[in-house]
Design a protein around this nucleic acid. Structure first.
Lengths: 120, 120
DNA sequence: CGGTATCCCTGAGGATACTG
DNA sequence: CAGTATCCTCAGGGATACCG
């Protein structure tokens, strides 16, 4: 049971109440790059190339697209500075920071999972 | 900052420690269906058709494939009963249940996100 | 019931080159 | 630096039909 206080066995109504919000979250966070980007930015604002260096394996094209998605959903803010050459800085919004608990739990599970795999 | 106790601004080393475990988790939970399946099973063991009915939009092919992935990673157990016609029951393993905190946080965030969207 | 087989198609993703 | 443009490929997902 996910939560013994709410869940009743085979209770479809309760199940739906869990499924819908989780799907809302997954729709925003889908793909392999969005959470890694958010994590990188949670350690401070970064520029495009910095992000690309830090997030191993991501291409410029993918990074560009994912940043746009995150900006549309107001998780990330883009700031352009009129230097030469131009400087662009990406910052996690306050709203983006509300994902902290989700990320912590995903990290905790990932750490345990890795131990389990190595242990075998 | 994700966690003020660990994170230092622009600390790439610390950032990596967050990125790697999260990517381990995302590798296991990738796609739009795995967490919904796990949630549905967290409300009790279910048969193939029950799952398909409960998880709105999933096709038999996708469900079949996702269940195999989850079984390989030992999050779900498959039990065949020699009735006629054959009955197959899918159950969340103890290990699968350790995802409860991840799911709770994703649900909490999804609920807040929906309120935010509707509020606009 | 519990799936597989087949076909088709979109879109994510890599490689490379190029621009303001 | 901060991307875009182009080309390509290939896995994933839907639709439909079928099988033990």
């Amino acid at each position: 049971m996910i939560n013994k206080k709410i869940a009743k066995p085979s209770s479809t109504g309760e199940c739906i109440k869990m499924l819908l919000p989780v799907r809302d979250s997954l729709d925003i966070l889908n793909g392999k790059w969005k959470l890694p980007i958010i994590i990188a930015l949670s350690y401070g604002s970064k520029r495009f190339k910095e992000l690309q260096r830090e997030i191993s394996g991501i291409t410029a094209k993918a990074l560009s697209k994912e940043l746009k998605d995150l900006e549309v959903n107001q998780l990330v803010k883009r700031a352009v500075f009129d230097t030469k050459p131009v400087t662009v800085e990406y910052t996690l919004t306050d709203y983006g920071q509300t994902l902290d608990k989700v990320i912590i739990e995903l990290r905790n599970w990932g750490v345990k999972h890795r131990k389990r795999i190595i242990g075998k």
